[in-house]
Design a protein around this nucleic acid. Sequence first.
DNA 1: TTCCGTGCAAAAATTTTGCATCATC
DNA 2: GATGATGCAAAATTTTTGCACGGAA
Lengths: 144, 144
Amino acid sequence: MQNVRERLELFVKKCKEIGLKITPQRLAVYEVLLKSPNHPTVEEIYEEVKKMYPYVSLATVYRTLETLERIGLVRRVCFWGNSARYDANTSEHHHLICERCGKIEDIELDDRISVPPELKGFKTESYSVNVYGLCPDCRSNLPS
Amino acid sequence: MQNVRERLELFVKKCKEIGLKITPQRLAVYEVLLKSPNHPTVEEIYEEVKKMYPYVSLATVYRTLETLERIGLVRRVCFWGNSARYDANTSEHHHLICERCGKIEDIELDDRISVPPELKGFKTESYSVNVYGLCPDCRSNLPS
DNA sequence: TTCCGTGCAAAAATTTTGCATCATC
DNA sequence: GATGATGCAAAATTTTTGCACGGAA
């Protein structure tokens, strides 16, 4: 989490390279995502950004997320439920997903998978593993 | 694909066990999913089901998918884009996803990952690997 | 006959878009 | 000052829900 500042600076640098303007809203959205331990929905990101910029628009959040995704700083992860979730950790990493409530946590795995550079005509670039299961809360409240 | 019949029979059996009624709409939705080589959106499933049952309602498709998911016959896979996609292959298997257009294909991987039965308090049950890359079409039409 | 499931339509939730204004470069 | 980003509101899309009717058990 200490590298939030660094990563924001990288973001600024990248924006300048590409010719994107650096606005407080963009920085705020990315910062929220960087500081978020889980994988927030758009609505959650919006609520958080509003704490800093009360007049921000939800449309701006959507547009910013789209931009961040396009330049590769954020990845859309939508495993469960109806709304997309976002993740600022775009490095190779993995997820633990509760099949019951949809909770998502990042995990480390010891094993590696070797993916061929080309598969079914696709040029492969990265992979991520989703582990499904039941979270502690759902294990205790098992009804149904 | 030859086991569509078997799997429909399993479905019927499962419904009887649980006390769910067997309706033509349910069978049709599941059949469409079983025969689908890719991962259709709800709308696509609806269109396909309508070919057999022109008066079927979209709400029924949504409700049926929810039911199928609940009894474990179908999994929601929503890697990209805005709408959920469904997959009748609930066994351990993996996906190849185009980062540009969202195309999804099932793949086989030689490597296995050993997942501990318990992880961060979660009781783990299964996993799946998503490989990201560029599909053949997107590789040729590369304009960014 | 008894319920569960369906269809329809309306409502709710989510995402996108048009346009005038504002801020960054 | 030029251009791109924002805010607002409206539109489009996707998903859920209420309720009366119909069909499966």
